[in-house]
Computed example of a mutant assay.
Amino acid sequence: MEDKIKIMIIIGLTVLLALSVFISLQTYGAKKSLETEAELIKAENASLSRKVEESRKENKRLQEQVEALEADLGRVSQEKEDLLRQREDIQKKYDLVLREKERIAAERLRAAPSTEAALEPVPQTQAEQNYWAAILKAKTDLELQVKNIQASNEQLRREKSTLEMDLNNLMQERKDLEEKMQYNAKMLDGMAADLVKEKNFRFELQEKLNSVKLENKGLRRQLNNLTNERMKLEKKLAQLNEEKAALERQLNEADLFLKERLSTITDAKQQMEIIRSGKADTRKESVELPPIVVRSQPESELVGLAPVALQDGPQFGRVLSLNKEHNFIIIDLGEAAGVKLGDTFQVYRGTELVATVEVIQVRKNISACDIKKELQAIRVGDTIR
């Protein structure tokens, strides 16, 4: 039973230890995976931050370009307006010159003497021709400048439209990057919370593991104590078995002793009467023991009643059997303990004197004693001194 309990305890401790190691490995692996994922997200976040910064710089550059183009457009528009005003002024001057020319031509016609003279072209001076040529040239230059300005204005508008589209795309990319950064930030917060939970769970597991280790130590101490107690009990059991074997040998000798004397029961009665009346010497070797009839006591009453023999001092023994009918007892002291015929012993129960007996027959490990004086009823197991 103890072996089964020991095996069950060892198996339970082994399973608990294996479970703790498995949970620790799972926790460590999950932690490493989360840390790796966190590092990847941090790297991606850093890359996105760089992209956002680059996008901001590009956006700023494009805004500066747009502002510069708007400034150029405003400047070109202003130049266009100036040119248009100059053109209008020139056109007004041209109209005034034409009206003046028509007026002069009309005055000349009215002043001419004949129709033919009126039909002849009015001659112009070189200064007038140069003036009108300069005006026409200026008008042509103005028209060319206006066309160039219009073409440049259209080009600037197309570039502005393109820049606005690029700016919108950059703004959209920036918005997407910001949303992605917010998502990554939320992911990092969630992962940080998960890491905190994992850390707390690992701390709890460590505490449980320490508690299990303490319980394991306690169980090991208990197991060692149980093992020691088992060894002590086994030694005690071996000692009791040896004592039991010794008592069985003593009982067997007693049985043989009783069987040998059973045949002389009739003659022993007469000799016992002579011994009691004092007419015969009890120390005489030729005197026969009275017949002994002893009922064997149960082994349970004899276990643990080991004799104590002291060669140089008083002898201590136990009462093995009692025969009330023939007034004698069997003790566990014999020739091996130095007992001789005629020796007198006292029977004690604890420290109280029970009776006085005298040895009438000796064997190797047992002796038969006649009850001389009985103060109390003798019992099996009483001490002999």
Rank of each mutant, 00 (worst) to 15 (best):
E178K: 12
L322R: 02
E285S: 11
L341P: 01
A337T: 02
Y131F: 13
R158A: 12
K197R: 09
Y94M: 14
F328N: 12
E301R: 12
E67G: 02
L219C: 01
V362Y: 04
R221E: 11
E173I: 08
V293M: 09
T162F: 02
A268Q: 12
E335W: 06
L375A: 03
R349T: 13
L302E: 01
Q150T: 09
I23F: 09
R349C: 06
L256V: 04
I104G: 10
A112Y: 09
S49N: 10
P123K: 02
A111G: 11
L119D: 03
R261I: 00
Q376M: 07
E204W: 07
Y183Q: 13
L262G: 15
S152A: 15
K31I: 09
R276L: 15
K324I: 10
I11C: 02
V347L: 07
G338K: 06
Q270H: 15
A112R: 15
N210P: 00
K340L: 13
W132D: 03
E35N: 06
Q172S: 10
N153W: 07
V76P: 00
E260M: 07
S20E: 04
R61G: 01
I5W: 10
H326V: 11
R75Q: 09
R202Y: 03
R283G: 14
V212G: 01
K217N: 11
Q311L: 11
K42S: 14
A151T: 15
R318L: 07
L170S: 08
Q129E: 08
N228R: 15
E253W: 01
S20T: 12
D255F: 06
P298T: 01
K60Q: 11
F345L: 04
S211A: 11
E179N: 07
W132M: 15
A377H: 05
R85T: 08
S114Q: 07
V319T: 05
Q182T: 11
N224T: 05
V122P: 01
I366N: 06
A106S: 13
N168W: 00
V146A: 12
V66E: 00
L170A: 08
N228T: 09
E81A: 13
K208A: 11
G74L: 13
I41S: 02
A138I: 14
N365Q: 06
N225S: 12
K139I: 15
V359D: 03
A193M: 02
V359N: 02
Q376P: 00
E54P: 00
I292P: 06
L19M: 09
K42G: 09
M272V: 02
N184P: 04
Y348W: 09
R103V: 15
D281L: 08
K175V: 09
K93A: 14
Q206S: 15
Q26K: 09
N130W: 04
N323T: 06
R283F: 10
N153K: 13
Q297H: 04
